[in-house]
Amino acid sequence: MKHSNVFVQTAVLSLLVALSLPAYSWTRALTFEQGAIGSKAQSGSDQDFDDAAGGSYITDERVLTGSKAAKLTVTGGSTAFGEWGGIINYPELLRKGDEVWFSVNTYFPEGFNYDSTGGGGHLKFLRIHAQKSDGSNSGYNDWYMNPEASTVPHKFIYEGQQQWFEFGAPSDEVQRGRWETYEMYIKFDNVPADQGGTAVVRVWKDGRLLREITGAETLNSSSDTSDRAHLFTYWNGAAPKTQFMYVDDIVVTSDTPSNRDASGNPMVGGASSGGGEPSVRPAAPQLNVE
C-alpha cells in the first residue's frame, strides 16, 4: 500500500509538472529565399508554401526584403484552387485557448482586379482552417476583401457561426503599386469573448488595428483544432482576368510576437508597416495580363 501511494503521488506530481510547462510554440516564416528563380514556390522547403500553390513562383521581379519573393498568378475564368496562393501547414495543431498570428506583405500591381463576382461578391484572403476531432472540415476563420470602391473594404466571418463583421474605411482598401502589410490574429475558442469566452479576432493593415472582434466564435466546438493557414487559394465566382501579384515575408506563428500596436496588442508587424522604404527591383514587363 505504501508503494502504491508513492506511485500515485509520483504520477500526480508528473502530471502537474507537465501541465505547468509552457505550450510548444512555433513559427513558419516564408521568405522564398531558398528556391531558384522561376521555380514553383512549393518545393518542400519550410520557406515556401506546402500545398495548393501551382501558380506561385519564386521571383526577383518585385522584392520586399532579401533577394526573392513569390509571384502569385491566377488564370482568368478560373476559381483556381491549386493554382492561386497557397497553404501553410502548422508544425503542431492549435487548440482551444491557443493563439495564432498570420501576417503577409502584398504588392498588387497597377491594373490588378481583385473583384469577385460570386460567393457573396468578396475575395477570400487570409484564412485560418478549423477541423473536427476526426479531421473533417469544421469551417474557416476568413478575412475577405470586398469589391473595389465598397463603402467598407473588408469583412470577417467564422464559417461555423455565419455572422459577418465588417471593418476598415474606404482608404483601407488595396492600394496598388506599393507594398502593404496585412495581419490577422485568432484566439481559439468556441465561445466569443462577448459571451464570457476567450475567442477574439484582430485585424491590422500596415501596423494599424482596423478592428478587434469580440463577438465571433473561432472554433465550432471545444474539441476542434486548427491545422493550417491559407493565403487566397480559391476565387469565388472565378478570377476576372489572367493576372499576378507579389507576396513576401509571410509569417504564421503561435509564439507571441515582441512587436506591439498602438493599443499594446502583440503583433508580427512587417517591413512595409514600419515606415521604411522596402527593397524593390524594377518589375518585369507585364505580359498576357488581360
Rank of each mutant, 00 (worst) to 15 (best):
N259R: 15
D48Y: 03
K2F: 10
Y90R: 02
L231C: 05
G85M: 05
A23G: 08
D261W: 03
R178Q: 15
M145G: 10
P22M: 05
P147Q: 14
P91Y: 01
L94I: 02
G44Q: 02
W235H: 01
S39Q: 15
R62Q: 11
H154N: 13
V152T: 15
G207H: 05
G38M: 02
V152E: 06
E92T: 14
V100I: 09
Q42N: 11
T75Y: 11
V201L: 05
A199V: 02
S25K: 14
D172A: 10
R28Y: 07
W204I: 02
G197A: 01
R211Q: 15
N89G: 03
K96M: 05
L21D: 02
E83C: 11
P109K: 07
I128D: 02
E99Q: 11
K241G: 00
N5D: 12
N141A: 04
S116N: 07
K124H: 09
A271K: 14
T151I: 15
R127E: 11
L126P: 01
I186G: 05
S222N: 09
I128E: 06
W26Q: 02
F49Y: 10
T225I: 12
T31S: 10
D51E: 14
S254V: 00
G215C: 06
T106R: 07
P192Y: 01
W26E: 03
W179S: 00
R211V: 13
R95Q: 11
